[in-house]
Design a protein around this nucleic acid. Structure first.
Length: 258
DNA sequence: ATGGCCTGTGCGACAGGA
């Protein structure tokens, strides 16, 4: 038996954060790292830097916006880009099987505002993801969905619930989709364990958000039953958020006894 | 204070993020 650690990190530009990502893989026992907001098209992706470090990688991206990647220490098979049967110009999802575990890396839609066209797109995107997850769970007993969900599932996950009440990222509609994922049989790995209060994964760059711990927990790891039963810890690693030139998100890690 | 910051684009502001 050994530990298998999977993680998710919205890097807010892989071009800027590449040294931090390589450093993170060199110095942490992370077997799989899912990245979001790479903001690079596939031609510009630094594949050589990862292969030089002995890492496997799959990715799908576009210039300026979005973009996702999965970094792993071992081979990846059955790589699938985007959500099948969902036409989408935005590159927000990639799946791969690694050591028998189906890994789905997602950068879910922000939505901007409840009366925005972008919120309509968010609802449609989440509907397509729910359908895809149902189909993937039928084929894969061991499945993990990791990423930037752009949903704070509970008021515990919001630094100032009164200020955010009902707004984008915390609306009943968005939380309904999160609950829908749980209803498929997935578990929020972070809530499998006792956690310190006011634990967040994102802090605004403005107004000293990190210093004041004015954050949100919007980056999540959801595990199928077979993985949740063998999950031994889930933590938010705040150290990268303390670095020079940090991403506004910090990594979330889950360890599974395999 | 529907601003404050950061990134990309591309060279001046603006879009987008959350």
């Amino acid at each position: 038996m050994s530990d298998f650690t999977i993680a998710t990190w919205n890097v807010n530009s892989l071009k800027v954060r590449l040294p931090q990502v390589l450093d993170y893989m060199a110095n942490n026992p992370v077997d799989v790292l899912c990245l979001q907001e790479t903001k690079l098209d596939d031609e510009a992706f630094p594949r050589q830097a990862f292969s030089d470090a002995g890492l496997h990688v799959c990715f799908t991206g576009q210039k300026t916006y979005n973009g996702v990647a999965i970094i792993s220490r071992t081979e990846q098979t059955n790589v699938q880009k985007n959500i099948p049967h969902f036409e989408d110009a935005q590159q927000r999802l990639i799946s791969a099987t690694i050591q028998g575990i189906r890994i789905i890396c997602a950068y879910m839609v922000n939505g901007q505002d409840l009366d925005s066209d972008k919120f309509v797109y968010k609802m449609n995107w989440l509907t397509a993801l729910h359908e895809y997850l149902g189909s993937e769970l039928k084929q894969h007993n061991q499945l993990a969905l990791l990423g930037d969900f752009n949903i704070a599932p509970d008021d515990r996950d919001v630094h100032d619930p009164a200020k955010w009440l009902g707004g984008n990222l915390v609306s009943p509609q968005e939380r309904g989709f999160f609950q829908g994922f749980l209803d498929l049989g997935l578990s929020d790995a972070f809530r499998l364990f006792e956690q310190t209060e006011k634990s967040y994964s994102w802090w605004d760059y403005r107004q000293g958000g990190f210093r004041r711990n004015a954050g949100l927990r919007i980056d999540h790891i959801l595990l199928s039953k077979a993985l949740a039963e063998r999950c031994t810890s889930c933590v938010i690693d705040k150290i990268p958020r303390q670095h020079e030139q940090p991403s506004d998100h910090t990594p979330v890690l889950a360890t599974i006894h395999v």
